[in-house]
Simulated assay, not measured.
Amino acid sequence: MLLEFDCDINERDRFERTALFVACLLGKKEVVNVLLEKNADILLCDEKRQSPLLVASRERYDDVVNALLEKNADVNQCDLNGNSSLLVASSESQLSTVQILSRKMTNNSTRNNLGQTPVFVAYMNGREDVVKYLLTFLSKYISTPDNEDRSPLFIACKEGHQHVVELLLKNDADVSQSDWNDRSPLFIASAEGYADIVNTLIKNKADINQCDEEGMTPLFIACDKGRTDIVTILINSKADINITDNKNRTPLYTACRRGFQEIVKLLHENNASILKCNKWGGSPLFAACRHGHFDIVKYLVENGASISSQDFNGTTPL
């Protein structure tokens, strides 16, 4: 009735949204059909440059998505962040929406402003069914990193998506591909405390002693974060216990500094050096004293730590 009285079908609100946009956002298919029949502009976007197709895809309205595509909606149109409808669907919508859009896309590998592909965001959000589908025709992007050089495998490890990690490795993802801080998938899984993923990566021949840009190994970061179960796995997998970072700190040193007594005992029982000092001459005992970890101080002294050793400034543990 309003349209018969010559109301502007493409009128916008203060957020630059048209009636068609709002109908798509809310999944009002009958209203969408009326507006499309009356030639509403299908390409008009809101202030974030989100198209009607993008919001319908994000909100999982497959019937609305199909209606828009039948009217030749631009499936390659992106918002201000560079997100296409397919990328948004790969991140948030059901598999059926992804399938509908991918059949219309001319460039399925389009990256957003963060350098993320549809494949990447599917891994990031643990979308196993979407990942399986996308790999049937986008497998060459399995290791394509984002702008921070984080690979899909790295992101899946960081977010704790075990099944996605297994799927990626099964499809020959690079198990040692690092981000721009030289952190490997094993490093980030160790830092986050995902024991199953750590075991999976080690079984797939991840370099157990691969360091980040600061020289820290997966064992070092696990000790620093207090991940006792991860430390146990890495020690049993023959990680180098006495390897140092760029400041000459050992895993034992950082465990003493952080106050993780159980890890300190575990490392010592596996022949970690109690006497090895950092680049300034500070011993593990010195670190435990400085941070007030009495039980660790007691343990170190009882097991042969030198109570009179000085750092380069002449400071003793006392």
Rank of each mutant, 00 (worst) to 15 (best):
E128K: 14
E128F: 08
L138K: 02
N147F: 12
F137G: 03
N113C: 10
Y133S: 06
T110V: 12
I142M: 07
A122W: 06
T136Q: 09
F120P: 12
E128Y: 13
N147G: 13
M105A: 13
M105V: 07
Y123L: 08
L114F: 12
M124E: 14
N125F: 14
S109V: 12
L135V: 00
I100F: 05
T117S: 15
S139G: 00
T117P: 12
S139M: 03
I100M: 05
I142Q: 09
V130P: 02
K132M: 07
R103I: 06
V130M: 01
N125Y: 14
D129Y: 01
I100L: 12
S143E: 10
T110H: 10
T106R: 09
F137E: 02
R150V: 03
M124F: 06
F137W: 03
G126D: 12
K140E: 15
Y123F: 13
D146Q: 12
V131G: 01
G115N: 04
T106Y: 04
V119G: 00
D149I: 03
V121Y: 07
T144E: 11
P118E: 09
T110C: 04
I142R: 07
I142H: 09
K132P: 01
T136R: 07
N112C: 11
G115Q: 10
Y141M: 10
I142T: 11
K140C: 12
Y133D: 03
Y141Q: 14
R111F: 05
D146T: 05
D149S: 13
G115K: 01
L134W: 05
L138I: 03
M124N: 04
L138H: 05
L114R: 13
R103N: 10
N107D: 14
L135D: 05
T117K: 08
N147A: 04
E148L: 10
L114T: 02
L138A: 10
D149L: 14
R103K: 15
L138P: 04
V130S: 11
T117D: 02
G126F: 09
N107G: 00
E128L: 15
T106E: 14
K132Y: 01
T144F: 09
N113F: 07
T106D: 06
V121G: 08
K104M: 08
R127V: 08
I100V: 13
L138M: 15
I100H: 02
V121P: 11
K104Y: 10
M105C: 15
R150L: 03
V131D: 03
N112I: 09
Q116I: 07
N108S: 13
G115C: 05
Y141T: 02
N113W: 02
L135W: 02
D129K: 15
M105Y: 00
L135F: 14
S109A: 15
A122E: 01
K132F: 01
T110K: 14
T136A: 02
L134G: 06
S109L: 03
I142L: 10
Y123M: 11
N107S: 09
G126A: 09
S109Q: 11
N108P: 10
N112Q: 15
V130W: 05
S139H: 07
K140T: 14
Y141P: 00
S102I: 00
G115A: 11
L134M: 04
P145N: 03
K132H: 11
L101V: 00
K140Q: 12
D129S: 15
V131N: 09
V131S: 08
T136G: 02
L101T: 05
N108Q: 03
R103C: 06
Q116S: 08
I142G: 05
